[in-house]
């Protein structure tokens, strides 16, 4: 019997190694799997490369992991945002490397990684400093920049419903980077608010088919948010 559900956070994060590239779902705080991210501190992996849209806010979730000194490099589209104090301090002190990627290029590099496409040409960024030193090609009279796929060793995602085969749905704008990152890593770990019987999720509404997911950790919603 296939059962991707794990009982503990330790099981969920087992085997993540130093130097791993971790894809972190979410857009700002929405859809960000904070429990999985923060638990990486106890799990112990160091020297991480984190791929996320934002560089954390406040002192929770991704910001907490960064503050603990576990992130060597961050690849994101929008590092400075309201409350990104931890990132700004680390960056100013030269304690974190930064790669800025246009948001759509970030999404497509992840999609490409999940789809077996090693690189692609995009019009985004042509003629700007983010395309500096990148290969450019003229196709049909327009210029395009060659961008590389961005695979992860691990993806951490927040789901809404999950079943034991790993089928996932998301909640409203919480889908964001989660669904595309789930396809782009060797090990995709989902924290889900609802864990349901196989067959309870209508196949027509599965967003991430279970083939992309290896581990499920159930984290019931706080009472005030539960439907």
């Amino acid at each position: 019997m296939i059962n991707k559900s794990v009982a503990t956070i330790e099981e969920a994060l087992a085997g993540i190694e130093d130097g791993a590239t971790i894809l972190v779902g979410g857009f700002g705080a929405v859809g960000q799997p904070d429990l999985l991210i923060e638990s990486l501190i106890d799990q112990g992996a160091r020297d991480l490369t984190v791929v996320a849209n934002n560089a954390g806010a406040g002192r929770v979730g991704l910001a907490k992991l960064m503050e603990a000194g576990r992130v060597r490099r961050i690849i994101c589209s929008f590092p400075r945002s309201a409350g990104s104090v931890v990132f700004e301090d680390l960056f100013r002190a030269g304690k974190i490397e930064l790669e800025i990627v246009p948001q759509g290029t970030l999404a497509e590099r992840l999609r490409a990684a999940g789809a077996g496409i090693p690189a692609f040409f995009t019009p985004t960024g042509y003629g700007t400093k983010l395309a500096k030193d990148k290969e450019v090609r003229e196709i049909g009279g327009r210029f395009y920049v060659l961008e590389q796929a961005l695979p992860g060793d691990v993806a951490l995602v927040e789901a809404w419903f999950a079943d034991r085969w790993g089928n996932l749905t998301y909640q409203k704008s919480g889908r964001n980077f989660n669904a595309v990152m789930a396809t782009a890593a060797k090990l995709t770990i989902a924290q889900t608010h609802y864990f349901v019987e196989l067959g309870a999720i209508d196949p027509e509404v599965v967003v991430t088919p279970g083939i992309f997911v290896q581990r499920i950790l159930t984290l019931p919603l706080p009472k005030e948010l539960a439907a």
Partner: peptide
Amino acid sequence: WAISEADAAPAVGGAMDLAAG
């Protein structure tokens, strides 16, 4: 998107994709 060439951590977000696309 960026106020100067010297800014090492400007936030591009989706601006370049929207402008190009």
